[in-house]
Amino acid sequence: MNFIIEKTFLSENVARLVVEAPLIAQKQHPGQFVIVRTDEKGERIPLTIADADKERGTITLIVQRVGTSSHKISLLNAGSRLLDVSGPLGRPTHIENKGTVLACGGGVGIAPLFPIARAFKEAGNRLIAVLGARTRELLILEGEMAAFADETVVMTDDGSYGKKGVITIGIEEVLRREPVHLAVAIGPAVMMKFVALLTRRYGVPTIASLNTIMVDGTGMCGACRVSVGGKTRFVCIDGPEFDAHEIDYDEMIQRLGTYRAEEKESYDAYLGTLS
């Protein structure tokens, strides 16, 4: 179980793994995630199901190296296995024909955005993708998105590819140009915060998929809690998607920093074992 069938790197720090998980492949819908543990001493970390193949019984995970656990996963190769994979968790995205849907993905957030965008397209929407990355090397899944999107706009912070500037610039161009009925934003918390501010100005309903710290992923611990519309919600069972205009991003960003010192200690120690 949980064998890795394929492993490739999409960019220097982003790995793509195809994992044998037949039950999860059968059941998953866009917007859902799994909790993964690499080894006996490992953490439980959430990763979005970026794609699934029911026939082959596999799911695709796309993971960006940011610390110990993600680095460990990125180093696993075809033939080895993940110790634990549990899911599909979270509520699926509510897919319907809205008209025009704007899919906004930043960094590794493009991975979870991909199946959602594709599902909106398949439901008959006009789909415009706006993808942002710091620099050309960090941009992932552009070709895959462009394959079904009606239009794909790429923004890089340094202008090394696509248009130069932050993602909101590309988004605003679309919003000024044509009516948009729904926006979906997935990426770093700050990015989602600014996308939400922008789409609110244009009166476009927006959903954001949150990547809070998690432990169990089943509603048991409350590690993943966020404030949405002034109420505490659990991202793992009430989300991961919420009304982007109601989320308290500042609180969420602070909570993501809970273990900064410990994460660094752990990562330094781990990198030490690699060299």
């Binding site: 169990d216 409350g222 410990e262």
Partner: peptide, 28 residues
């Protein structure tokens, strides 16, 4: 929701199930 406020479930799960008391040997 301030940092450092846990539910007892999270606190005990981190320690008992995930062995956070042996961090950084254990990753949690």
């Amino acid at each position: 929701n301030a940092i450092g406020i846990y539910s007892s479930n999270e606190y005990l799960t981190r320690v008992n199930l995930m062995r956070a008391y042996q961090f950084p040997e254990y990753d949690t």
